[in-house]
Simulated assay, not measured.
Amino acid sequence: MNEMQKPVIGFTCGDLNGIGLELILKTLGDHRLLEICTPVVFASNKSINFYRKSLPDINFNYASGKDFSRLNPKQVNIYPCWEEEVAITPGQLNETGGKYALISLKEAAQALKAGHIHGLVTAPIHKKNIQSADFNYSGHTPYLKDLFGVNDVVMFMVAENMRIGLVTEHVTVADVSKHITKESIISKLKIMHSSLQKDFGIDKPKIAVLGLNPHAGDEGLIGSEEENIIKPAIKEAKHNMLVFGPYSADAFFARGQYERFDAVLAMYHDQGLIPFKSLAIGEGVNFTAGLNAVRTSPDHGTAFDIAGKGKADHSSFMAATFECIEIIRLRFGYAEMRQNPLRKMSARILANAVDEKIEETE
């Protein structure tokens, strides 16, 4: 992609019986998006038309075809992943919804890997009905990790006022501590640090690490993970980045300490996502950090209860689309800067001039 080219953004349909296609229609129905990207929806013409009937106020025109070299930059493009008639039953959890969600995801992910599209926005799937011999994963994040053949990725929740990464994602609470290791924490910190630099334009990011146990273990009185695993991981990571902690999760968010950092590493899903969804300003976006491609998604699920009723709020999906485009542009600029020593030096001088030191407390 050159500096003047609009990025090509792919969109998966998600569960056919969920709100995915409605979100796509509402988001891409705003034709101003065509000024900043070329959209490609991985679905079928018939599925698009099914949901278009329930949204008569949305002016949604599209071109259809499988040739990436002939995409129409002035229209939404549909990449037809299947041609057969499919019984769409909004609001129902069934095998059909999962089957075609996976077909859409596989086609789109392969296009992303091959470089036919520059970024991917994924609509919500249901983790139960998408399971099959081809998809034995707890969600999009581990699937994309394996497809791209990378050692590790981070589920990175981003909003206007906070960014939260997770050490463990969709793991049962009973098993969380088994996955908290020094190596996993350091791996996540490295990915977050690199992502904050190249994907968010922060030259010297500051990262906070939460403890696992109440009160961050109280110096070993409540669990041993902080003393034996988390603190040694932070100590080692400090050689290469600005990282602080471990912090007691409840006080950290209640006192607004997250505002002093560029990102926070939480130990498990709810520890990070409950404060994120409670305190985030603007719409939250799920970003997969660590891939050599850009994938984002809204921070909500399939919403079967309102599917097919035209009631879905597409704000988070729109935010995921904008975030995808912005990260692509920042990555391009970062790559350009890395190739130009003068730009790189200027960026460092500027960053050092405005850098604020954080004293490690608690």
Score class of each variant (00 low, 15 high):
residue 55 L to V: 10
residue 66 K to F: 11
residue 99 K to V: 04
residue 41 V to M: 09
residue 113 K to P: 00
residue 71 L to V: 07
residue 74 K to H: 12
residue 88 I to P: 12
residue 61 N to Q: 15
residue 122 T to Q: 03
residue 109 A to H: 05
residue 103 I to C: 08
residue 58 I to G: 02
residue 92 Q to F: 12
residue 93 L to A: 12
residue 49 N to D: 15
residue 114 A to Y: 10
residue 43 A to Y: 03
residue 35 E to N: 13
residue 84 E to S: 11
residue 80 P to K: 06
residue 72 N to F: 05
residue 69 S to N: 14
residue 116 H to V: 02
residue 126 H to G: 09
residue 74 K to A: 13
residue 90 P to Y: 03
residue 65 G to F: 08
residue 64 S to L: 08
residue 119 G to T: 06
residue 121 V to E: 03
residue 92 Q to Y: 14
residue 93 L to K: 09
residue 53 K to D: 07
residue 55 L to D: 05
residue 35 E to Q: 15
residue 91 G to M: 04
residue 99 K to H: 08
residue 54 S to A: 14
residue 128 K to H: 13
residue 129 N to D: 13
residue 67 D to Q: 06
residue 42 F to K: 01
residue 126 H to I: 13
residue 130 I to C: 08
residue 76 V to P: 00
residue 110 Q to G: 08
residue 78 I to Y: 00
residue 86 V to D: 06
residue 118 H to N: 15
residue 115 G to L: 10
residue 62 Y to F: 15
residue 98 G to Q: 02
residue 42 F to H: 04
residue 57 D to K: 10
residue 86 V to C: 07
residue 91 G to Q: 03
residue 86 V to G: 07
residue 116 H to I: 05
residue 63 A to S: 14
residue 45 N to M: 14
residue 102 L to P: 01
residue 53 K to Q: 13
residue 40 V to D: 01
residue 128 K to I: 12
residue 41 V to D: 00
residue 95 E to Y: 05
residue 125 I to S: 02
residue 110 Q to K: 15
residue 127 K to E: 04
residue 75 Q to C: 03
residue 64 S to V: 14
residue 74 K to F: 07
residue 116 H to G: 03
residue 74 K to S: 14
residue 75 Q to W: 00
residue 66 K to S: 11
residue 88 I to W: 14
residue 89 T to K: 15
residue 97 G to A: 11
